[in-house]
Design a protein around this nucleic acid. Structure first.
Length: 912
DNA sequence: AAACTGGAAGCAAAC
DNA sequence: ACGTTTGCTTCCAGT
């Protein structure tokens, strides 16, 4: 943490630079995006909102943001769409799109002195900022895979950074954390100089920034300058943008010698980067008033941006026009700034910096256009990818935004989930091939409900699989696979330092794509950790998810963006070989009396494997832990039968969500799997037998498709239901389809986020569907309506709590609405799973919908706020960290433990 | 020959 | 402070 100061300073410098750059950039605007962008809206509309927000924000950024959004929404014709986005975003207090927020801030600063900004609460200023900020977004960053600026620098909380984060959470900031990437807060907060903090987010694009940094910075800069680090060709060792070279934490020592040994590295890197290792996280913790202000500002900006995005996404044209050209330009610039990694495949950078593929099918070109245009609402013109196009319009939702998997008639589903393990390759290695499906084939993604003849572009990026909100993974990048064996065309683009693979979704193929062109690249931890603003730690952070997105332009000019994330994928060699993995469980819930045998299917089970049920408080403390009885005789490497232990309290009046994991040794634990204890009188959820079950040959327990990773279907806790749905713009959530695999779960459920569940819960009750079965393989689970709702409600523990507590009531409450979104948003990630509507068209409104229906943004908001209370008032008190529900806990656990320790909170251990 | 794969050595961080 | 364990990267070699 000592570094913080440095960082802050750096940030400052960055800001400086950035702002300058921005200003200079005016030219770029090239495209005015469309009306959509027009974010104007917000502005326009916004004034009121903004102003309000602004104030609000200061107090609680989150809230204010929400409100804005809502307001915006309400204003808009379609609230839905907007809402959708918001919801997802919601989490981020920043709400806003993480990425954006940072950018915004920067701009603002540049134009407006910090002082002014902070001081002035006037709407005008705000507005301006918003605008500026937008512009800012465009900032070129070059850093490689992850944009410091945009992405959450600190974003990922993971680990240690968590500490700080944790604290932040407590402080109520945690929301931000949620949106790690985005959250401008992260780094910004830290800096004492509040404003500066904002800056911090951005990476140093320029050397200038570096000055402050320790000398070491240079490397980064250099790297950035060169290419954003990703650019390097495989063969050559790319240095990661941040070379570890040496110093700092990042250096971690490892491979310092690399010099000798590995020529690659360092070379490019400047030896000195001192990255300020300290994760920004600390900053959060240390939020001071000043910081707060700064944050607030950011926040505000973020909020605005978010709102804008939302609107934009929706395609609200009206708004768009208001936006200054400049802004747009900036945006463009930004795109330009984006570094694309060139691949042999023939991709070309357009002058703009955009990546173009030669080989990409013409259709794709069209799509792309749509893609770009769509967001922007720019009239679509067919263009070839080769054309330099402004990269994503600002309107596109940030990659760390939580989006629903279904909206209205559309439903984006992962029909075939990827295998739970895929050894990622380092840049120093050759490709290790495309991610495969358990069957030997490849993951399959399909968009249901799309009847147009226009091809669409399916985006794919590597997301996190921890308990926090889904966001681009800092340590992994999707890698485009080409060759004879690859049947799917694709092309890469960089979006906010995250490589995104774009794959055509063709009507002739029923909008179905076989993902045989996506591998996973592992970036050196030291390189990433050195990045400025990066708070995530790479160690043991080896689980990822494939995140798919599709943006559908609507006749009304709006764009519906859907997202589906896969089950978690373990990417480390070792883990894949040693860690137990639970893919399915025959029973998701059972009365507190326990006693029922549950069949677990998965990998790496051993005769001495133990199954441990645990219940944790929101703050991560163990409330209860007991080892279940394993039927040693039936243990197979792929299956294991355990007896559900009785819950510690036989008198529970509502479902209680707990977790369990398989343990092969001290540090060899599977991710936590969810399990719900039901009150004696509650009907048990009915599960359907799974195919696998038979295959296992083991007990005849029906298997739930759940995988650890998979979203919890049943579990109320999980955001499963798709928050997404709620989120989705414009359309009511789709009935869940459950395809199995779906990604569902957004594993993302970040600790913080878990909140969503609450909202979730409420929504869900009605919809029976949410539970999503695991992948295609598993049959959907049948839930009893009652049960489902119950579960969710039950879960209040986690879900609900998280939200409240974390956010600190204030957030949520204050603006009312906001709380909402954030929550949902959070959940959404995970939710995705839930959301899949089985039938594309199905319209059944999900509870969410009702609750959130866009039009009623406010209502929703209010409701949202209400929900939490209802759901789990108690939880409110609780705090902070959520436990990862589904996702990978292994790693997370470690991280969480660290955090806990830091927090020094008292833990109660109850051992059964 | 190139792209995958599987395995493991070597080193540093975490225990 | 020291030894052991764990995890990360890089290499090597086989398919």
């Amino acid at each position: 943490m000592s570094f913080q100061h440095e960082e802050q300073e750096f940030d400052f410098s960055y800001m400086f630079e950035y702002s300058q750059g921005l200003q200079n950039e005016p030219e770029r605007d090239a495209y005015s995006y469309t009306p959509n962008v027009s974010l104007s809206l917000p502005l326009g509309m916004g004034n009121p909102c903004l102003a309000t927000q602004y104030h609000t924000l200061q107090s609680s950024p989150v809230i204010s943001v929400s409100s804005c959004h809502q307001t915006g929404y309400s204003l808009q014709n379609d609230n839905h769409a907007a809402s959708g986005y918001y919801l997802p975003h919601g989490l981020r207090p920043n709400g806003a799109p993480a990425l954006e927020s940072p950018r915004i801030e920067i701009t603002a600063y540049s134009q407006y002195p910090e002082d002014e900004v902070e001081e002035s609460s006037s709407e005008d200023h705000i507005i301006k900022r918003g605008v500026n900020s937008i512009v800012t977004l465009t900032l070129p960053n070059a850093d490689g895979y992850r944009d410091p600026s945009c992405l959450s620098p600190a974003s990922s909380i993971s680990s240690r950074s968590c500490n700080s984060e944790a604290s932040s959470y407590e402080s109520g900031f945690y929301n931000y954390d949620n949106s790690p990437q985005n959250s401008p807060w992260q780094s910004p907060c830290v800096s004492p100089k509040g404003s500066s903090s904002l800056l911090s987010c951005h990476h140093a694009s320029g050397p200038a920034a570096s000055p402050r940094h320790s000398p070491s910075t240079s490397p980064q800069i250099g790297a950035l300058a060169e290419e954003g680090w990703p650019a390097q060709p495989r063969g050559s060792r790319p240095n990661s943008p941040f070379c570890s070279g040496g110093n700092g934490i990042g250096s971690m020592g490892k491979r310092k010698y690399s010099f000798n040994g590995t020529p690659y590295r360092q070379t490019s890197c400047s030896p000195n980067q001192s990255p300020t290792p300290s994760p920004h996280g600390s900053p959060r913790v240390s939020v001071t008033d000043e910081n707060w202000l700064a944050n607030t500002n950011q926040y505000t900006n973020s909020a605005i941006v978010a709102a804008i995005n939302a609107l934009t996404t929706d395609g609200v044209v009206e708004i768009g026009e208001g936006i200054p050209i400049k802004t747009r330009k900036t945006m463009l610039d930004h795109s330009t700034s984006m570094s694309l990694k060139m691949e042999p495949a023939g991709e070309m950078l357009s002058p703009d910096g955009e990546l173009c593929h030669e080989d990409y099918p013409s259709r794709m070109a069209l799509k792309k256009e749509n893609y770009c245009g769509g967001f922007l609402d720019v009239p679509q013109h067919p263009y070839s990818w080769s054309k330099p196009k402004p990269y994503l319009s600002p309107s596109l939702p940030s990659l760390d935004w939580q989006l629903p998997s279904c909206s209205g008639p559309y439903n984006l589903q992962i029909e075939m989930q990827p295998k739970s393990h895929h050894r990622a390759h380092y840049e120093t290695e050759g490709s290790r091939g495309a991610v495969k499906a358990p069957s030997g084939g490849h993951p399959v993604v399909q968009l249901y409900g799309y009847m147009e003849s226009e091809p669409l572009t399916l985006q794919l990026f590597i997301g996190t699989a921890d308990d926090r909100l889904l966001r681009p993974h800092a340590f992994y990048q999707v890698h485009r696979i080409t060759g004879k064996t690859v049947s799917t065309a694709s092309h890469e683009v960089m979006q906010s330092n995250t490589k995104v693979l774009e794959i055509p979704l063709l009507p002739e193929n029923n909008m179905r794509a076989i993902i045989d062109c996506a591998g996973i690249l592992k970036l050196r931890n030291s390189d990433i950790e050195l990045r400025k603003g990066e708070t995530d730690i790479g160690r043991k952070n080896t689980r990822v998810r494939l995140v798919f997105r599709v943006h559908i332009n609507q006749p009304n000019g709006r764009t519906v963006s859907l997202q589906a994330s896969s089950n978690p994928i373990e990417c480390s060699q070792r883990s894949a070989q040693e860690l137990p993995l639970v893919e399915k469980q025959s029973v998701d819930s059972y009365p507190a009396t326990g006693g029922k045998m549950v069949l677990l299917s998965g990998l790496n089970f051993q005769p001495d494997s133990k199954v441990v049920f645990v219940e944790k408080a929101q703050d991560g403390h163990h409330l209860w832990e007991t080892e279940a009885k394993v039927d040693k005789d039936s243990v197979k490497s792929s299956s294991l039968v355990v007896e559900i232990p009785p819950y510690r309290n036989q008198r529970i009046s509502s479902p209680v969500q707990v977790n369990f994991y398989v343990c092969n040794g001290k540090r060899k634990r599977s991710q936590c799997q969810r399990f719900t204890y039901l009150p004696p009188n509650v009907p048990i959820i009915k599960t359907e037998p799974s195919d696998e079950y038979d295959s296992l040959g083991t007990a005849r327990l029906p298997m739930h498709s759940k995988s650890y990773y998979s979203q919890p279907r049943l579990t109320p806790i999980m955001p499963v239901a798709d928050p997404d749905a709620c989120l989705v713009g414009g359309y009511p959530p789709c009935p869940v389809r459950h395809a199995a695999m779906q990604s569902s779960s957004p594993s993302s459920s970040p600790t913080l986020h878990d909140l969503s569940p609450v909202a979730y819960t409420k929504c869900l009750p009605n919809s029976p569907t949410h539970a999503a079965p695991p992948g295609s393989v598993a049959p959907p689970i049948q839930e009893t309506p009652g049960c489902a709702s119950l579960d969710q409600s039950a879960s209040p523990d986690h879900n609900t709590f998280m939200l409240h507590s974390q956010g600190s009531p204030d957030h949520l409450n204050s603006p009312g609405p906001h709380g909402y979104h954030p929550i949902y948003a959070n959940s959404s990630p995970s939710s995705s799973p839930v959301s899949h509507p089985s039938t594309p068209g199905a319209t059944a409104e999900s509870p969410f919908v009702q609750a959130y229906s866009p039009s009623q943004a406010q209502a929703a908001a209010s409701s949202a706020s209400l929900l939490p209370e209802d759901a789990s008032p108690p939880s409110m008190a609780i705090t902070v960290k959520q436990e990862p529900q589904e996702l990978d806990q292994m790693y997370l656990d470690d991280v969480n433990e660290i955090i806990r320790n830091d927090l020094s909170s008292i833990s109660v251990h109850t051992h059964a």
